[in-house]
């Protein structure tokens, strides 16, 4: 078993997968806490479908690096959905969930349609499945993808650490933050951009349909057990990284799809934390 593992670790693509997987799961869990607490989880889900649609467009246009299309499109939609309310100061209301469902399902449908009409590959269904469920795509990363991913996630990490307290203040009580002079609109914009970047990155790891699982599960598990924002953030990060590493290694050894194996590990941890909190409190 271990021999097999070390044998695989000799391949650069396996090492890339591990590095990228760790970074992406770290970033997604950190912002996941904010996303869950702000009740934005379903926007995250919608955005991942938008990223899939953008990927299809990129495939059709045959751009050299499809990140060039996916990133700007997803960021633009994220800003529209997260900061788009007409007067963000009057009781912040994001556009109705019907609009988000529309964008999300629409992007999925158009993406699949485009891929079907314009794809040159013989196995369209396989390609689509790969982008939706991640399949083995993380193991086929090119060095440029890895560098781009490392730069983007490092940026996200630095921004998160620098603005950690601001993000907490805005997530906890946006009105108070605004009253005491925090530039809430600017930070909401920043958060929207970061979330879009993370979703695009996470799509590489687990595929478009599973992105929200990667973002939501670690924070929900951490929130079951811990009671301060700081401990929840740290716990979510640790849980997420451990689950992703376990998922990647199991996937390599057992030949299962990477994305769903990672999510399976996340679900397992969620159940463990659920039961732990259940036993500790004697109730929900």
């Amino acid at each position: 078993m271990l021999d097999k593992l070390f044998f695989y670790l000799d391949f650069p693509f396996v090492r890339y997968a591990i590095i990228v997987g760790t970074l992406i799961s770290l970033c997604s869990s950190l912002l996941g806490v904010t996303l869950v607490l702000k009740r934005y989880s379903y926007i995250g889900d919608g955005l991942s479908h938008v990223a899939f649609g953008a990927l299809a467009i990129a495939a059709v246009l045959k751009v050299s690096n499809n990140m060039l299309i996916i990133l700007p499109v997803t960021i633009a939609v994220a800003i529209l959905l997260l900061c788009g309310s007409k007067d963000s100061r009057a009781c912040v209301k994001i556009r109705g969930d019907a609009a988000i469902a529309m964008v999300s399902a629409g992007a999925l449908a158009m993406g699949y349609l485009l891929m079907n009409i314009f794809s040159s590959s013989a196995n369209v269904a396989g390609d689509v499945c790969t982008t939706l469920f991640g399949s083995m795509s993380i193991l086929t990363l090119k060095p440029t993808d890895v560098y781009l991913c490392m730069i983007l996630s490092a940026t996200v990490l630095v921004i998160f650490i620098l603005f950690y307290h601001k993000i907490f203040a805005i997530t906890f009580d946006e009105n108070f933050a605004r009253a005491t002079g925090v530039n809430v609109s600017a930070f909401n914009l920043l958060i929207a951009i970061i979330i879009a970047v993370i979703i695009v990155l996470a799509m590489n790891l687990v595929g478009a349909l599973l992105v929200s699982a990667l973002i939501v599960f670690p924070s929900l598990s951490a929130m079951r057990i811990f009671k301060s924002f700081f401990s929840v953030t740290i716990a979510a990060a640790v849980i997420s990284v451990i689950c992703s590493l376990t998922g990647i290694l199991v996937a390599i050894l057992a030949g299962t799809p990477v994305g769903s194996t990672i999510v399976a590990a996340d679900i397992l941890v969620f159940f463990i934390s659920y039961i732990t909190s259940f036993i500790r409190n004697g109730r929900m």
Partner: peptide, 11 residues
């Protein structure tokens, strides 16, 4: 919302 009293006051 998971937050300690201290975190809230410091915010």
């Amino acid at each position: 919302f998971p937050a300690s009293v201290e975190e809230i006051v410091l915010s």
